[in-house]
Amino acid sequence: MELLLISLASLAAGFVDSIVGGGGLILLPALFAIFPSAPPATLLGVNKSASVWGTISATFQYAHRVEMPWHALLPAAGLAFAGSMVGAWVVTQVSPDALRALLPLVLLAVLIYTLARKDLGRDHAPRFSGRRETAAACVLGVTIGFYDGFFGPGTGSFLVFLFVRWLGYDFLHASASAKLLNVASNVAALSLFAWKGHIWWHYVVVLGLANVVGSMLGTRMALKHGSGFVRVAFIVVVSALILKTGWDAWVRMP
């Protein structure tokens, strides 16, 4: 029964994550609820070991249907990997408590801005090209990669928002581009969790397959309905992130 429940949660997480990120809102609480006595690092490792396969699947699906600026994204993905590694090391030296309290406010600002700009992410009109686009994507990759390794919540949503707001992508292209960077930062985190022995390998195959199925369903829906649908999903996920991170930071804090 435990495996069935977390597999369903992994499928739902893959569905949400493939569209706009935020799958951890579903799978992580399920893992903590079903395995309350397990070390948090182990449950985080299980979450990463499942979600990385769905994110890889979504990246391949988007790449076949959406024009991807590989010249910018591949270097950015490499820096996202490096940034995530550095962030994961820094969190062993510095507490992220201040960031935990600030995060809901940052997400709220992102949500208000998105709601106020009705045309935000509607049209795909990249602001940069060539080396400038590569440089902008690399800054985004190393910064958000570091954040993912150091803290994590909302990484996918931040990537989508910044691709839309800073690089001028529509929500569909932003979501597709964000997936590749998210894969890189997830692989970095997963490598560290595996090295530290924080992964239950006997769950990886089943949860990974469930996540891939959810990811395939979500990606197809995003491709079918386009940027308008992804924008609505983005607003819903960011709203849920505000509630979740606000509760963790201000209500449930020790």
Rank of each mutant, 00 (worst) to 15 (best):
K48N: 09
A30M: 13
K48E: 06
G78N: 08
A176W: 05
G24V: 01
V160R: 01
I26N: 02
V46T: 13
G168W: 04
Y147E: 12
I144T: 08
L105D: 05
I19Q: 01
R127E: 01
R117H: 15
F81P: 02
A188Y: 08
P254L: 06
A222P: 10
I144C: 04
V46C: 04
A12D: 01
G214S: 05
G214H: 08
L28Q: 02
A136S: 11
K224W: 14
S95R: 11
K196T: 12
F193M: 01
M68C: 07
I199S: 03
H198W: 08
F161S: 04
N182W: 07
V232L: 14
G156I: 04
A184T: 06
L108H: 05
I235W: 00
L207K: 02
G149D: 05
I199E: 03
M85S: 12
R100V: 13
L31H: 06
L103V: 12
F158E: 09
L11N: 04
G152H: 06
F60M: 11
I199V: 15
F128C: 07
S191A: 14
Y169M: 14
G156S: 10
D170K: 01
S37L: 08
V16G: 06
K48P: 02
A88T: 06
S129T: 14
G21H: 07
K224T: 12
W89E: 13
A174Y: 00
S185K: 13
L172E: 06
V20Q: 02
L99D: 03
E133H: 11
W166E: 07
T59V: 00
T134C: 14
G45A: 02
V213W: 05
P36T: 05
G149H: 08
G22L: 01
I235H: 02
A189R: 14
R231H: 08
T219M: 03
V110T: 10
I19P: 03
F146W: 10
G87E: 10
L44P: 00
R165M: 10
R252H: 12
A136Q: 03
